[in-house]
Design a protein around this nucleic acid. Structure first.
Length: 593
RNA sequence: GCCCCUGUAGCUCAAUGGAUAGAGCACCGGACUUCUAAUCCGAUGGUUGUGAGUUCGAGUCUCACCAGGGGCGCCA
């Protein structure tokens, strides 16, 4: 946010270094100064000092040299640098050069920028690059549980982050509406539930019948043959089977729509498994003809020996199975034409797959297969955004087959009930409709935040106690800070005051709050670069904490007129920054709580 | 056997190779005639799994080992 000033200072530093006959560094790296009530930027000279120490070869212990040499360089620069306007002072400390902002100028700039840009504050300039993000990938005829939730929440947040960073994003879903799990479901339905229809909660009902199908199959010995026979009828496009599939599939799709609406997630493009089955089988034949795939049928499946094709001696990508020995399709049968279709249809600069970590080898195999098929460029543009799974306490894996699931609808309902209790207790004068709305926003925020607030490759352990705990580092805390800011602004007489540089010494809590607000644009870029929503959950929390600190220490409405004006604008800017970062995370910011 | 991930306070987790490793929870002690106390302040709590190495500097990079989890020819 202070690029111009940084550049001007960098130029000076480089000149001074050159005058001293020292090696000019390739890049000057700026950090924040550890906060002590003042605000500014900082760089260190250890690298430069180490370089000089090596060149001099004094034979002295280098350890002592570097620290003091870095301090000498910092001293020299501090002594001869001319501070651009907007800076209050410069200091050399422990090898660091610290440049402090004159808070009046810079805080005005930050606040003005936020209020001018409004809900686009933090957004980067358009990069002219297209990114396709595939996420969610639900299975029809199965339950939707908290394990699937992490995928949707991360995928949605990543799309928002990339969009905010300046990319053109295509949100893609890939719905698995065919496969063995569907046939099992149809078998159970035909045999034991024919004519029944789902109730209000479609996804739960579909999931229950799927779990039941698995139990029945375990119990009855003839089931496996019946299911196989049904799969064969499906493959022959038997009218009765197709009709039943079409109807039941739609129940799942309707249920998914409800879930996505509930979560506030949308898609630009939906790919369906069943559309890729035949193209996939055709593609397999081509690959066999080209000598890329090896046909071991009928004794074995159709495979691709990736290590052999790539000339790798050490086992790396191993063997990918692309068609069953009976000719029916696998995941890979369909993922290959899907990967191709994405490029042919959208030509994205990057094609991202949000899929859990257990499929990392498989996805590398798919990407490498694209390369050996003659599309190395596409292969390189593919990226597996992997994340760890959600477990239950005691390291129990969530499995829809076993029924060890926490259903999304149960979680949301419990969280809403809990949130409603708290709203009633904390703010009884709200009308019941508002209470419901607030409870909904709080519940969903509380559910989403912990899925985003730990690193993607860390396992999330779901337990009811912490899922329903709204205290501490959690979404409701951040939402509450937004509500407090909103509350002040609601009570303000008239419009927001015009911009002025504050004519008083800012409190440390004000300086810190402004500092954090100013970091949003850079943090969005970083989160996009590293595909890590975590950076934004951290910033959101720090913003809220800093605002609460400010709220405690700095009266706004009762302050002297000039102070009041500046603080009102700061409150408005803080509210905007918090709202923006929450929006990117897919979390709503309520007006009251 | 090969590969990947994780290991930081009692618990759950942070920390662009850089200044004194920080939060929350839990526990203990304080603060509501003051813009919403879903808040704030204070106290306690650390050999960053172990051992080497690279570096001026390592929780962060490299290697080995230990512990836990995951993946590896017809599941998705």
């Amino acid at each position: 946010m202070f690029q111009t000033e940084q550049n001007a200072i960098e130029e000076q530093i480089i000149n001074i270094i050159a005058q001293k006959g020292l090696t000019i560094p390739e890049k000057i790296h700026w950090n924040a100064i550890p906060f002590s009530g003042e605000w500014g930027i900082s760089t260190s000279f250890f690298q430069l000092a180490a370089q000089e120490a090596r060149l001099n070869k004094t034979g002295q212990p280098q350890k002592l040299n570097v620290a003091s040499l870095a301090q000498e360089i910092a001293n020299a620069i501090a002594a001869s640098i001319t501070l651009p306007s907007g800076f209050s002072r410069v200091e050399a400390v422990k090898g660091y050069l610290n440049l402090y902002f004159s808070t009046a100028d810079f805080s005005q700039r930050v606040v003005d920028t936020v209020l001018t840009q409004g809900d686009k504050f933090g957004w980067g300039e358009a990069k002219g690059q297209r990114i396709l993000v595939e996420f969610s990938q639900p299975n029809t005829h199965k339950a939707f549980h908290v394990g699937h939730l992490r995928n949707v929440v991360i995928g949605d947040a990543i799309c928002n982050i990339l969009e905010a960073a300046g990319y053109d994003v295509i949100r893609a879903n890939y719905i698995n509406d065919t496969g063995l799990h569907v046939i099992k479901w149809l078998w159970n339905y035909q045999k034991y539930h024919l004519g029944e229809r789902p109730g209000k909660d479609k996804t739960r009902w579909m999931g229950d019948l799927y779990a039941e199908a698995n139990h029945r199959m375990e119990e009855s010995p003839e089931a496996e043959n019946e299911v196989r026979a049904l799969f064969a009828r499906w493959d022959q496009r038997d009218e009765e089977v197709i009709a039943l599939w079409r109807e039941s599939r739609q129940w799942s799709l309707d249920g998914f729509d409800e879930i996505y609406n509930l979560l506030g997630v949308r898609f630009d493009n939906i790919f369906y498994d069943h559309e890729l089955e035949k193209p996939g089988q055709k593609l397999v034949e081509e690959l066999i003809k080209k000598g890329i795939a090896i046909d071991e049928r009928p004794e074995g499946p159709v495979i691709i020996r990736l290590d052999d094709l790539l000339g790798l001696k050490k086992e790396t990508y191993r063997v990918l199975v692309i068609l069953r020995s009976d000719g029916t399709s696998l995941y890979s049968t369909k993922d290959l034409p899907l990967a191709i279709e994405k490029f042919e249809k959208f030509n994205p600069d990057r094609s991202i797959y949000v899929i859990d970590v257990r499929q990392s080898l498989y996805l590398q195999q798919i990407y490498k297969t694209l390369a050996v098929m003659g599309h190395p460029d596409w292969s390189e543009r593919c990226y597996h955004l992997s994340y760890e799974i959600v477990n239950l306490p005691g390291n129990v894996t969530i499995a829809s087959r076993e029924g060890t699931v926490v259903l999304l609808e149960d979680l949301v309902r419990e969280a809403e009930n809990r949130a409603l209790e708290v709203v009633k207790e904390k703010n009884p004068e709200l009308n019941s409709e508002t209470m419901q709305e607030v409870a909904h926003m709080v519940a969903l925020g509380a559910i989403k935040y912990p899925m985003l607030a730990r690193d993607n490759n860390k396992i999330v352990t779901f337990d009811w106690k912490s899922a329903l705990d709204f205290n501490g580092q959690a979404a409701p805390y951040i939402q509450y800070a937004h509500v407090r800011a909103n509350s002040i602004l609601r009570r303000m007489d008239g419009d927001l005051p015009d911009s002025t540089a504050p004519q008083y010494d800012l409190e440390p809590s004000e300086v810190q709050l402004i500092d954090l607000i100013s970091r949003l644009p850079a943090e969005i870029q970083r989160a996009a670069q590293e595909y890590k929503p975590l950076h934004l959950t951290n910033l959101a929390y720090e913003l809220a904490r800093s605002f609460n600190d400010f709220y405690m220490q700095c009266p706004v409405l009762k302050a002297e007129p000039d102070i009041k004006s500046a603080r009102l604008r700061l409150v408005a800017a803080a509210r905007q920054a918090i709202a923006n970062v929450l929006t990117i995370l897919g979390i709503k910011a309520p007006q009251v709580m």
